[in-house]
């Protein structure tokens, strides 16, 4: 079932629209705010469109700030795929054409996870107080939600380029199969993590933990930052008595020093890359398979050692 499209503006049927803005290669352009959406657009549009995704590998698209020239390029796109859930704040402070914009997570917006870490405040006496709270935005780590976003992308492509509806539908079927397989593998793999002490290095795994029935304590660490005494105390405070095993989830491969410190603290290191940005090697599916592989390698260590004491 195709997901409903944009909250702000649905993409209009351009069957009668001649002369869409074309890229230098003569193909229409689809802009995406993160790599998963860019990957879906690349898979679904196959050969007929160029996908514009400017953040370079290593850049987190959620915090990317485009230059004026980059915004101008995005404005020329025939379709702009937004993640929704407040992802990529630049989209609310930059001018992008409303009518070309599609929010791919609209179909499950009722299931967004609210974050309650804002400060309630007011600016002027007598005005209403408010909180800058938001929702978790790494929606695609629940691979079923990723499927819904892929479907929404396909629907938008079919509306914008009806002449390619057959190929888009065909590619969507293949993509949904791949994502469904990954979801099943992830579900099977993570089943062993239920009930374990799970600490994640960054607050980006909310949908992943919910989808696969996990419970995680979230920190705000970078993989390469130096872990001092305060960080290790913070980590120690997350320990649950009687846990069968303790796992520490990193966003990307951390430094060897950090791996060692976490191991000494009694946790098993696992890398689950959210893949928000374009990977240096491979594609979205490959990164997700690597995540499953990393979990498959790490989980047995916990099972064999039981609760590891430092």
């Amino acid at each position: 079932m195709l997901a409903s499209t944009s909250l702000i503006s649905s993409c209009e049927n351009s069957g009668n629209q001649a002369n869409p803005d074309l890229s230098p290669t003569g193909k229409p352009t689809i802009a995406a705010v993160n790599y998963p959406l860019a990957y879906f657009a690349e898979r679904l549009s196959a050969e007929f469109a160029e996908v514009l995704f400017d953040p370079s590998p290593g850049t987190d698209p959620a915090y990317w700030e485009p230059t004026d020239n980059q915004v101008s390029s995005i404005q020329q796109a025939d379709l702009i795929l937004l993640n929704g859930a407040g992802y990529a704040r630049w989209t609310s402070s930059r001018t992008i054409p409303y009518e070309a914009t599609v929010i791919t997570s609209t179909s499950f917006e009722d299931a967004f996870i609210k974050l309650q870490d804002g400060i309630r405040h007011t600016h002027q006496r007598g005005t209403a107080s408010h909180t800058h709270e938001g929702v978790a935005s790494t929606t695609w780590l629940d691979l079923m939600q990723a499927s819904a976003q892929a479907s929404s992308t396909a629907e938008a492509l079919i509306e914008q380029f009806p002449e390619h509806s057959d190929s888009v539908s065909r590619e969507l079927e293949s993509l949904l199969t791949d994502l469904g397989d990954l979801d099943r593998q992830m579900r099977t793999t993570t089943a062993a993590l239920r009930g374990a002490d799970l600490v994640v290095s960054h607050p980006v795994y909310q949908y992943w933990t919910r989808a696969y029935e996990l419970s995680a304590h979230s920190l705000h660490w970078e993989p390469t930052q130096e872990l001092g005494a305060s960080e290790m105390s913070e980590l120690a405070a997350t320990r649950t008595e009687g846990a069968s095993a303790r796992y520490f989830i990193w966003e990307t491969q951390p430094s060897q020093e950090n791996l060692d410190k976490i191991k000494i603290a009694g946790f098993i290191n696992i890398v689950v890359n959210p893949c928000g940005g374009r990977p240096r090697n491979g594609d979205f599916l490959k990164v997700m398979r690597e995540n499953i592989s990393s979990l498959n390698q790490g989980i047995p260590q916990g099972a064999s050692t039981g609760a590891v004491e430092p």
């Binding site: 004026d68 101008s72 404005q75 930059r94 001018t95 054409p97 409303y98």
Partner: peptide, 22 residues
């Protein structure tokens, strides 16, 4: 308004460029 307004009215930017941010 949105950028589509300029297309509707056939308005082109003769000097500079269109708006890109708030």
């Amino acid at each position: 308004t949105s950028l589509a307004y300029f297309k509707l009215r056939g308005l082109t930017v003769s000097t500079g460029r269109t708006m890109t941010r708030l």
